[in-house]
Amino acid sequence: MRRGTGPVVAGAVVVASALAWSEWLNWRWSRTLVGTGAGAGEAVVVLGYRNPRPAVNAVNRWRVRAGIRSLAAGGGRETCLILSGGTTGDGATEAELMAGYARSVLGFDGTVLLEDRSTTTWENITNVIPLLEDAGRIKIVSQPAHALKARAYLRRQRPDLAERLVRADDYRPGEWLAAKPLLALYGLWKLRVLTAGERGAPARAEAR
């Protein structure tokens, strides 16, 4: 090995390990607290991200795209897209901005319901519950850690509805690749409010 290549190789190994770790963690989060869902009707809940400016931001644009691709093909009237998020500025709510993007930019012509009062994840879940009562399958869309936190909150508030949770299409290998290590670290910090069971970890891990 040439002199000076050692640090380069070591750095490459560290980067590759961080990417693999973050991919695995996001993959696991996307599959935690979900089932198979056999009921009729589907509700896909897209959680908004703080959007104080009048234009929909990049995170919310991605979440809307992930929400639309999460919709079951041929769902028809029994399928709806629920956009959840209040205002963090003086203009339109997150839900309204996401709806405008879905309609005008993505050309989505399916059923859209808005929940435009929430400013926290707990409120997102509390306020969309009335819209979920008739759904046989429920999908929650966000970055995987955030979506898992929301599923845990639904489990706490309405365990009967949580039984209807199924996996959304908000995790794909390689998506957000460069940002995934940071998103994974941020996700671990945000998920500290959940129990080990809600995070999908063995209960005894709490004692370590």
Rank of each mutant, 00 (worst) to 15 (best):
W62T: 15
G74L: 02
A203M: 01
L106D: 08
W62G: 13
V14Y: 00
L25N: 11
P173C: 02
A205L: 12
E133I: 13
N127R: 02
V56R: 02
R31H: 15
I125F: 03
I68P: 11
N51S: 09
A150V: 08
I138Y: 10
R2T: 14
R155N: 09
V9A: 07
A55G: 10
I129F: 03
V45Q: 00
V59I: 14
N51W: 03
R77F: 05
P52N: 05
T93L: 01
D170K: 13
S30F: 06
G11R: 07
L81N: 09
D109M: 01
W21L: 05
L106C: 07
V13M: 02
R192W: 14
T79P: 06
A66E: 15
V13I: 13
L177Y: 08
L131G: 07
A207L: 13
V166C: 11
G86W: 03
A95L: 07
A102R: 08
L132V: 10
A162F: 13
G136A: 00
V56Y: 08
A205W: 15
N127K: 02
A58Q: 12
R155S: 11
T195E: 00
P7M: 00
R50I: 07
R192S: 14
R172L: 04
V9E: 00
L194K: 04
A207D: 14
W29G: 08
Y49L: 01
A203C: 00
A203F: 08
V193L: 00
D160C: 09
A43Q: 03
I140P: 15
I82H: 06
G85F: 05
L165N: 13
G100R: 14
W189S: 14
T119K: 05
R167N: 06
T121D: 04
E206P: 08
A20L: 11
F108E: 01
Y101G: 03
G75P: 08
V64C: 02
V112W: 03
G76N: 06
A12Q: 01
R208N: 08
N51F: 03
L188T: 15
V8S: 03
L25Y: 15
N57L: 01
L132C: 09
A145D: 10
R172I: 05
N57V: 13
A73H: 15
P159F: 07
G197N: 02
T5P: 03
K139L: 06
A207W: 15
V141D: 04
A178H: 06
L154F: 10
P54Y: 10
L33P: 14
K190R: 09
A72E: 08
N124C: 02
A73Y: 13
S118N: 04
L113Q: 14
L132M: 04
A10C: 05
N57Q: 05
D170R: 12
A55W: 11
T121M: 02
I125Q: 02
G85V: 06
G100I: 08
